[in-house]
Design a protein around this nucleic acid. Sequence first.
DNA 1: TCCATAATTCCAGACTTATAGAATTATAAT
DNA 2: ATTATAATTCTATAAGTCTGGAATTATGGA
Lengths: 118, 118
Amino acid sequence: MESEAVILALAALAQSTRLDVFRLLVSREPAGVPAGEIARELAVPANTMSAHLSVLTRAGLVRSERRSRSIIYRADLEHFRSVATFLLKDCCGGRPEVCAPLVADLTPCCPPKEPAHG
Amino acid sequence: MESEAVILALAALAQSTRLDVFRLLVSREPAGVPAGEIARELAVPANTMSAHLSVLTRAGLVRSERRSRSIIYRADLEHFRSVATFLLKDCCGGRPEVCAPLVADLTPCCPPKEPAHG
DNA sequence: TCCATAATTCCAGACTTATAGAATTATAAT
DNA sequence: ATTATAATTCTATAAGTCTGGAATTATGGA
């Protein structure tokens, strides 16, 4: 993950409509949501929403796939996680005390598996 | 942590000079760095840097304190962590599989304490 | 007081982003 | 072919951001 990709992702999420879109898509994984329904649920005109979805796509945070007349959008959770990792590693590397409480906070909601093998 | 505060923080970090500043300040904790030295190290004019520092301050990511003629800037790691927590909790709540690998990735660099007590 | 240093604020120009109406493209049903 | 639905692209406007020169404020030393 390069820092330019991180900046793109941060900029994409630093806008209320787009943050709402991403949260909606995360909550609707893995089914995804058609563009029109996203626009309807968030009460934003379809063309405006299309512009926002394009920003999220360029940032790598969402992917889309046509299904008949609809275009289904889904959150790219792996990309999101790699952005978070980049950001946290930066401070974690030098400052373990930053990440320790965060890990402690996150651990209860995540299955206590053994360390990743990838 | 409200979502408006998160958007402010994301917007502040979604700019290369400011991301560099924040990384520099994280690496220089807890001593901090005077404004002029930040500008010099990142090769940015003092007034331009001042504008960036002001954005980071409004976003709650840095704090400053005058020491004689210098103004010392420091990263606010707690605020940064609460931004990260907000973002991750959102996906963690619905999608544990997102956070599990991240926690696994972060754990090795952080002391394996028992869960937080705050 | 006078000067030097450190940082900020003021200001203007160039650039980018957010928004949405109108037009267009793509798909499917009749 | 015609019509309807779903989404995007075109275009324009309003608003916001990034940048840095010039002026200003704050501090400290001679």
